[in-house]
Each structure stands twice: as structure tokens, then as C-alpha cells.
Amino acid sequence: MSQPLINKFVVVGIGLIGGSLATGLKQRGACAEVIGVARKPETCVEAVERGVVDRAYTSLSEVASELRQGDVVFISVPTLSVTSVLQEIKECISSEVTITDGASVKGSVLRAAEQVFGEVPPQLVLGHPIAGSEKSGVTAANPNLYENHRVILTPASTTDAYHLGLTTDMWNAVGAEVLTMSVEEHDEVLGATSHLPHVIAYSLVDTLAQDIHNPNIFRYAAGGFRDFTRIASSDPVMWHDIMRANKTAILQSMDLFIDNLSRLRAGIEQEDSDYLLKVFSRAKEARDEFTLMLAQRQAPSSKD
């Protein structure tokens, strides 16, 4: 039997992102053991009972002495909680252990690492899986969540090649495609393509729920409303943290969207048929192109 890629995989935060990676690695035989760390004892118990982890603790320090080279600690907590986890890592985890994360904002994690360590330590590989669901918590763990999805790694100049390589291999093992880019580019791109859509979805649902005084407003909502607003069921704490952590990029995207929405409003008010058709046609063309790109990316290769 071949040696697993990772010896001990430690997931700090046993929710959708961390739990899915844990179960994905377990099912594929890519790690010898999965250890969970969660703030609540009941979460630890449930994670073990569901088979998401092999054992679980409420503190990283309880397992720290076991960890060596070839082990991985994956930080999967709300963005603004990463600093405290890094502080605990500094105090009790060997520099041989690979540390990586799944936070949706990389600039805030970079700053947290610099604050705690003085620089990004060689063992730390900043990363973000571009996959998710409106579901959250340990019950949402899905071993196939990352198949045919992209993971963006944003290594610093100080990141060691060994730790970067192990992190890359880890994501490849669960079926993900790994890309690299700068922290700045990541936060700008995700601010527009992920964070802005969540802003819009949350705002739309809140507007309909609070400001339109019609008790039947949701009763007659069709599939388009359901599909468009699905992401408004995502974890509020996680998205609260993301909005604060990536404020600059999100505000820039919001300003651009608001300007375009204002122009669209004027087009509707003035019954500017040409303008409306141009906007809708341009958007349809862009959306169709995106759908085609996605289908091509997910299609099985000729080698399969």
C-alpha cells in the first residue's frame, strides 16, 4: 500500500470548507488521519460521529506536540478569526508543519501573518478554494465539493517550495485545479465575481422582506428568484467578515455596479429601447460565453 500524501491533516474549523476537504482527503486515501479543531465541544463530537474527522479537540495546542513534517494544518475559520489561530500556531506548532488556509480574502490573512510572525513564515501557504454552498456547518461537509473547481494559491516571496508543493498536491488530490496569483489580484477579482454578487443577493432579499409590504411577496416568487438569491442563505458571520476584510475592492465593485444600475434605471424610465437591448444582449452574450467556458472546463478529458 502506498504512503499517503499527508500524515496528519488538522482542520481548524470543521464547517463546509474545512469539513469537505477533510472528508475528500479521507475518502481518497490522501491522508493517514484527520484531526478536527472546533471551538464548541458538541461540534467536535458531531464531527467524529459523522466521520468527518477521526478525532477532535477544542484547542490546537492539544494536538500540536504530535505534528511533524508531512503534516498539514488547514485554517478554515471566519476571515477575521484567522489572526487568533495564527497566534496559537506561532506558540505551539513546529516550523516543519505545513500551514495553509481557505479564507476568501487574502490581503487580511497576509497582514495577520505579518502582524503575528513579523513576516509570512516559510511554512504558510495562503490559499482560497473557489467552491462553496449556501449550506454551512459540519453537516454540510461534502467530499466531492472541490472536484473540477479551482483553488487559488497566493504564495508570498518567503513561502518555502516544499510547503507550496505539498499544498498544491493536497488540492490536486481532491480533484481541484490549482492556480497562483498575487494577493492583490486575488482580492480584486474575488471582490467583483464573488463578494459583489453576495452583496446584491443579501440586499435584494432584505429589501423584499423588509421594505415591500406585501405578505405574498415570496409566495409567488419563481425559480429565477430562487436561483439568483440562493447565496443569501450563506453564513452571515462569514460574509460579515469578508465584507470588512475586503472592503476596498468590494466598494469599488459596488460603485461600478451602482453607476451601471443608475444608467439602466434611466434607460427604463426614458424607454430607451436601443440602450436596454444593448445592455441585455451584451449581458446575455457574456453569460453564454461564461457558461460555455465552464462546461469545457468540467468536461472529462480524452485521457479519462
Rank of each mutant, 00 (worst) to 15 (best):
N7R: 14
L126E: 09
T180Q: 14
R226K: 15
G118R: 09
V237W: 00
L153T: 09
R39Y: 13
N148R: 15
A249W: 02
A192T: 04
V52K: 06
P41C: 04
D288P: 11
H198T: 10
G36N: 09
F74E: 06
Q115V: 04
K8Q: 08
Y162R: 09
G15L: 06
A221K: 10
K247M: 02
I250F: 01
A245V: 00
S157N: 08
G29S: 08
L5A: 05
L256S: 05
G175I: 04
D255M: 09
V205C: 12
S253A: 15
L166C: 02
C44W: 08
L80K: 11
I35P: 05
R68H: 15
L124H: 07
A156V: 08
V279L: 08
D274G: 00
V85T: 08
T158S: 15
G165W: 00
R50I: 07
S273G: 00
P155S: 13
Q123D: 13
E185I: 06
E91V: 03
M254S: 01
L251T: 01
L196Y: 04
F280V: 06
D169L: 10
V105N: 05
V34D: 00
Q123I: 02
S281L: 01
Q115A: 14
A192C: 03
A22H: 05
V109H: 06
S301A: 14
I17C: 03
L124G: 03
L5G: 06
K26I: 11
V97W: 07
V77S: 04
E96P: 03
Q270G: 00
Y202C: 14
G118V: 13
Y146R: 11
Y146Q: 12
V10A: 05
L277Y: 13
G223W: 06
A245E: 01
S273D: 05
R50W: 04
P155C: 13
T139I: 11
G118F: 05
G118I: 10
K90F: 00
K40W: 03
N7I: 04
D235I: 07
A64G: 13
Q3F: 09
R55N: 11
D187R: 02
G102D: 06
S157L: 10
V12F: 07
G18A: 02
T159L: 04
I250D: 00
T168G: 00
M293E: 15
F280Q: 13
L196H: 05
S94A: 08
S61E: 14
V189Q: 09
A222V: 10
A141I: 09
I212W: 11
D272R: 07
